Simulated assay, not measured.
Amino acid sequence: MLRTLDPRLRLRHLQCLVALASHRSVLKAADALAQTPSAVSKSLAELEAITGETLALRHRKGLELTPAGHILLRHAAQAIGALRDGFELLGTGEKAPEHVRIGILPTAAATLVPNAIRQMQARYSHLVVTAHGGTNADLLVRLKLRELDLVIGRISHPSEMVGISFEHLYMEPLVMAVRPGHPLLDAPALQPADVRAYPMVLPMKGTYIRPAAETFLQSSGIGMPQQLVETLSSTMARSLMRTGDAIWFVPYGVIELDLDDGLARTLPVDTSPTSAAVGLTTLGTGELPEGARLFIDVMREVASEMRNRNRRSLMQEG
């Protein structure tokens, strides 16, 4: 039976569904929408009554959309995105600058993306980049909701890549970064026990690179350090490394500028087994906006330039 658009449907119903899918919690969705939790629950109940479907289920770990909820979500996100684009074009009557909405993981934030933005601005002055940071999982959710055009960084876990496309740009390892003058840099023959004796800064559990770091530490005989700091903050990790003897186990792209400026060194440890692909993640369906396609072309050029330079730098540091 063909369904018609129910006149009871309001924009707040669609906004509610998108917020619940993004935050997986009535409380967090209410906070994001500046509404009360009861108002969010009411909007969800009304939307379920309008559609005649159960759209979300509550579990211990949070709220999860049903298959029907995911179907409606895809179209709700598209509708809200189309309205947002329309409002951006209103105003002066002149063509508004085209926005490229990107999600950036830390490994791409220091060098790759800034270099691409500089080159893009030199060629396409009408493009405006809106950059969002976050964890891999958070950015992929926003990509699926069409709040982002693409995500740039390390490839995610295969379970999170369903329905999206990844374009490989280059391989990147984790490295063990320390301050210049660190005692381990003068060690005649670095032993696993020597590394384990110093504080180490690792990405938090739940991030995609944490298992890669732990697997390497165990397989290399280093094991988990006696003193450990877990953080997603590059600012804090960099401070711990620079002002003490902490070892920062970090993607090369995050520490690259510090290495170039002589503010950090890498320990002579072969960390190549931790290498993973860095690239562009898109929905892989439909046509990307022109601005996003132009930006991706520039990204490919910049990544090509970076490959050989990164390889030479790693050889020199090693």
Rank of each mutant, 00 (worst) to 15 (best):
L83S: 10
P203N: 11
P7W: 02
P199T: 01
L127W: 04
G52H: 05
W248P: 07
L89W: 15
L9K: 11
G244T: 07
E94T: 11
H59V: 14
S272W: 12
T207Y: 07
Y252M: 09
P199K: 02
Q218G: 11
F166A: 00
T111E: 10
V26P: 05
L257Y: 09
L112H: 04
W248C: 12
A32S: 15
H182V: 00
F216G: 10
A292Y: 07
G62Y: 03
V26H: 08
S272Y: 12
A116W: 01
R300N: 02
Q78W: 14
R118W: 13
Y252T: 06
A49Y: 10
L139I: 04
M204K: 12
V269P: 14
L184K: 09
R60A: 14
L228T: 08
S239V: 09
A276F: 15
G81D: 03
P67Q: 04
L2E: 15
R307W: 05
K205A: 13
V129P: 04
R210M: 03
E48A: 00
Y198Q: 04
L90K: 08
G134I: 05
S22N: 10
L89I: 07
P289I: 09
D261W: 09
A193I: 13
V100E: 06
P225I: 03
Y208V: 10
T274W: 07
R309H: 07
H75M: 09
K95D: 12
R12E: 14
A177T: 06
K205R: 14
Y252A: 11
S233T: 06
P251T: 01
L47I: 04
A246Q: 03
A49E: 14
L72Y: 02
D245E: 14
P67E: 01
A116E: 03
A56L: 02
R84Q: 14
F87G: 06
V175I: 12
A189R: 14
S304V: 09
V278M: 01
H182E: 02
G206Q: 06
S165Q: 11
L190G: 00
S239M: 09
R196Y: 08
A82W: 15
T271Q: 13
G244R: 08
L127M: 10
D260C: 13
L259V: 03
G86T: 08
S313G: 09
L27T: 15
T51G: 01
A39P: 09
M171C: 10
A187K: 13
M241G: 00
G62K: 00
I50A: 06
G62W: 06
A19P: 04
P106K: 02
S41P: 07
V100I: 08
Q121D: 07
L73Q: 01
L105V: 04
D6F: 05
V40K: 01
M200S: 00
L9H: 11
F166D: 04
E287K: 15
E167A: 09
M200V: 00
T51F: 05
Q121N: 06
T274H: 11
T107M: 07
S234R: 11
E290T: 10
P7Q: 13
A49Q: 13
V113K: 05
M241K: 00
V195M: 05
V278I: 06
V269R: 12
R179L: 08
M236P: 03
I164Y: 05
V250L: 12
T282L: 05
E256C: 02
S25N: 08
G286T: 07
A212D: 15
S38M: 15
D6P: 09
A108G: 01
